[in-house]
């Protein structure tokens, strides 16, 4: 399977797409097979935390995974998403090919050819595949939730001490314990999920 770093890098990077490729993401293309394939790969990759097989994509898109459906999906991907560089094809073995999105955030660009060389000019804002389909590990969400839980618990502890509910000694023990735990969570989030945290926290 792909490493966690690889999956994270796919989320954090913004991929430039020319208009003829960007159109597959737009609302107007919602009914097209290509659009449905993109979202199916995103959703399945998020569930499996890795690349997905053609049969799984076919099942998700059409509710069937027979060979003819798989052929349609494969040919559509080859002509559009693979050509545009939006999907990557990984050969795990001779009979084990899997697919994954190359990025989850896309920028529509216009290519400008001039004597100074080719340049790209961004058009509009960065488009994001919904966060709920990003391949972010459970560990991140658990840590984020726990962080919030400990922060709130520290507030309660201070408030209870101020109101005389607990003695000083007990209060100091708990403060030390809760703060230590919170700092450990923060350290782990910062070391493993800094970029993703900034993206999801915005």
């Amino acid at each position: 399977m792909l490493s966690q770093e690889d999956l994270m890098s796919r989320i954090t990077k913004v991929k430039n797409l020319r208009e003829e490729c960007f159109k597959y993401l737009e609302t107007a293309a919602q009914q097209t097979l290509t659009h449905q394939i993109i979202y199916a790969i995103a959703r399945l990759s998020s569930e499996k935390m890795g690349p997905v097989k053609l049969a799984e994509i076919a099942q998700a898109v059409s509710g069937m995974s027979d060979k003819s459906k798989q052929d349609v999906i494969r040919l559509t991907m080859e002509k559009t998403l693979l050509k545009c560089g939006m999907v990557e094809k990984l050969h795990y073995a001779a009979n084990d090919v899997r697919y994954i999105l190359t990025a989850y955030r896309f920028q529509k660009v216009k290519k400008i050819e001039s004597f100074r060389g080719d340049n790209v000019e961004p058009i509009g804002e960065v488009f994001e595949i919904p966060m709920s389909t990003w391949p972010v590990t459970d560990e991140y969400f658990i840590l984020k939730s726990k962080k919030s839980g400990y922060e709130e618990a520290l507030k309660k502890l201070n408030s209870d001490y101020d109101n005389g509910r607990i003695p000083r000694g007990r209060y100091e023990d708990l403060i030390r314990e809760l703060t230590g735990n919170l700092n450990e969570i923060i350290r782990k989030i910062d070391s493993k999920f800094k970029d993703i945290g900034e993206l999801m926290g915005k």
Partner: peptide, 22 residues
């Protein structure tokens, strides 16, 4: 306090679901 940590953690998870993150 332990129960409170869990309760608030779950509330945070709820808000992530509401905002479409999960």
């Amino acid at each position: 306090i332990i129960d409170y940590v869990l309760q608030k953690s779950i509330e945070n998870l709820d808000s992530m679901r509401t905002s479409g993150i999960i």
